[in-house]
């Protein structure tokens, strides 16, 4: 199971990297979203996918899935949400102001 997950993560990261390296603002943002998905899954996988019960003590199970990575990923998801929202608005403003979403055309002036 872990190996399958790691391979999935690998694919996510590869595609995310490819998207980030492109010129279009939109694609870069999508790439970042994919990258954060990959990171979350990797984190969860590395904490061992033991098939315990969900980390709710009310379940009174003998073993629980590791709660710490879950808490961290939860934080990461929300932060990622905030950052993505920010990037989207940034992209929106950039396009409104400069009329392009191509990074090559968005370069600063020579003397910068």
């Amino acid at each position: 199971m872990e190996i399958l997950m790691i391979l999935t993560v690998g694919v996510l990261v590869t595609v995310a990297t490819y998207m980030i390296l492109t010129k279009s603002l939109l694609r870069v943002i999508l790439g970042v979203v994919l990258l954060s998905h990959g990171a979350h899954l990797l984190f969860l996988t590395m904490a061992n996918l033991k098939q315990g019960s969900p980390p709710l003590l009310g379940e009174e199970a003998s073993s629980y899935a590791d709660p710490l990575p879950q808490a961290l990923i939860l934080t990461a998801i929300v932060i990622g949400f905030g950052i993505t929202a920010f990037m989207l608005v940034l992209a929106y403003r950039t396009y409104k102001a400069h009329g392009t979403d191509n990074f090559d055309e968005l370069r600063g002036t020579e003397d910068e």
């Binding site: 969900p54 709710l56 003590l57 009310g58 939860l74 929300v78």
Partner: peptide, 8 residues
């Protein structure tokens, strides 16, 4: 606090 859910 006791089941899935919370502020987020």
């Amino acid at each position: 606090h006791n089941n899935p859910g919370g502020g987020f």
